[in-house]
Design a binder for these strands. Structure first.
Lengths: 230, 230
DNA sequence: CGGAACATTGACCCATGTCAAGTGTCGTGG
DNA sequence: CCACGACACTTGACATGGGTCAATGTTCCG
């Protein structure tokens, strides 16, 4: 139930440790990608999975007509590439300078063969992603622009808190376009909705990428769909 | 790429055989549920997974304010319940009288412990579901009502063909409300879009639940977003 | 300082939602 | 066999949220 009140809007990734992988990751090679550089593109053969060390990556698909759906963002600690069989199903592009650990996928197969529980843990990791993706679908499918953006901001607030920072102020690493393509809105609507939240004195924007939450309770009401009030 | 031109709109299930499970399923107990009866509800403890033998099941989540998102439909051969850890994440309700095989989830754990490759196969099965869910998200997020409904109908057409029937005529087991909640549209919009496709002479509706495809090429153009023509 | 990229704001429009009748269609009981 | 009610579907009139197009502002970096 709590996933409904607070839709995850989590990155399409897995954060929980996968035991057998940890030691491999520690020795894995490091890769740097610059902002806007592609880590991989849709259709590329799946040779590695990655773990973000620093920076941020946007994961997205593109429709024939050029429309873009951002499927998630990956931050430090997140794994990228799980679930791709044979070839990658989406594009992974850095939204800021990023460092990642690279693991050959063959490691997955080895680990699964050696440790019978490992395959099952992979399964559980994907189950979490599936749940997050469904929550995102609920959010983009059934909610108003305001509800979507507020849910998005609250997800960041919680992430900030989880990392030991204040939940009341944080940096958004991505552009309005990225947010829009994630939430299924246009740049203009995202911008207008930010302005609306500012006008309602629910947030402040010291810079366009820096969010300060003023009234988190009211924001949570909005996200839960209990809006149409003050 | 082909998944983009022909978004899957597959049920949230797995159709490929999972080897080790097959023999268990053959001896598994059979359960009958009537139309509108619940197989399980969100929050129920996950005690079994199921395979549909006959009939059809709708899988959906409900938001706090009552809005509903149908996440998928399960048809004969499809597995239900994979990926739910501890408790079910959605409701499963029969849309027609349905028979299912019931497997205690403990079987999954046993199979994974016995056969190291089995856990990995589960992982692969979920990866397929994840890809289908993302395709559904693309469809509901980025496309017009007409594109959505046409994609939906073409998915049925392909399913019909796969089962050895003509791809040009088939039965829809679900109501307009189910379709709407799946595609993120209202009943009225679904109905109007059916009427529009009829008027354009792309389909016929001998009964409201029976669809006859008249011009499948043009439908495929519409689904690919190459519309705004004829 | 200049220019590119990103963000904001305004005016307008349209697809789809909402509300409200109608119209089948099916199953049950008289 | 018909009458009735329930339910699903269709259709119409109208409202509106968010998309589109078009300036204008702002920030950042070379």
């Amino acid at each position: 139930m709590q996933t409904l009140s607070h839709p995850a809007l989590q990155p399409v990734v897995n954060t929980r440790p996968l035991g057998a992988l940890e030691e491999s990751l520690a020795r894995a090679s490091l890769r740097r990608v610059e902002a806007k550089e592609f880590l991989f593109a849709e259709g590329d053969p799946t040779t590695h999975i990655f773990r973000v060390e620093t920076g941020a990556i946007a994961l997205y698909k593109i429709l024939a007509d050029g429309r873009r759906q951002v499927v998630g963002f990956a931050y430090p600690g997140d794994l990228i590439g799980l679930g791709a069989q044979g070839e990658h199903l989406m594009n992974a592009q850095a939204i800021k300078p990023t460092r990642l650990r690279c693991l050959p996928i063959t490691i997955l197969h080895h680990a699964a063969a050696k440790d019978p529980a490992f395959g099952f843990r992979l399964y559980e990791a994907l189950a979490g992603e599936l749940a997050a993706t469904r929550d995102l679908m609920l959010t983009t499918g059934l909610r108003s622009a305001t509800e979507r953006l507020v849910s998005f901001l609250l997800a960041f607030s919680r992430r900030s808190e989880r990392h030991g920072h204040t939940p009341l102020e944080f940096e958004l690493p991505m552009t309005r376009a990225d947010i829009g393509d994630f939430l299924g809105l246009t740049i203009e609507t995202v911008s207008r909705t930010f302005t609306k939240l500012k006008t309602l004195r629910l947030i402040e924007l010291p810079h366009s990428n820096r969010v300060k939450i003023v009234d988190i309770d009211e924001l949570e009401n909005l996200a839960d769909g209990e809006d149409h009030q003050g």
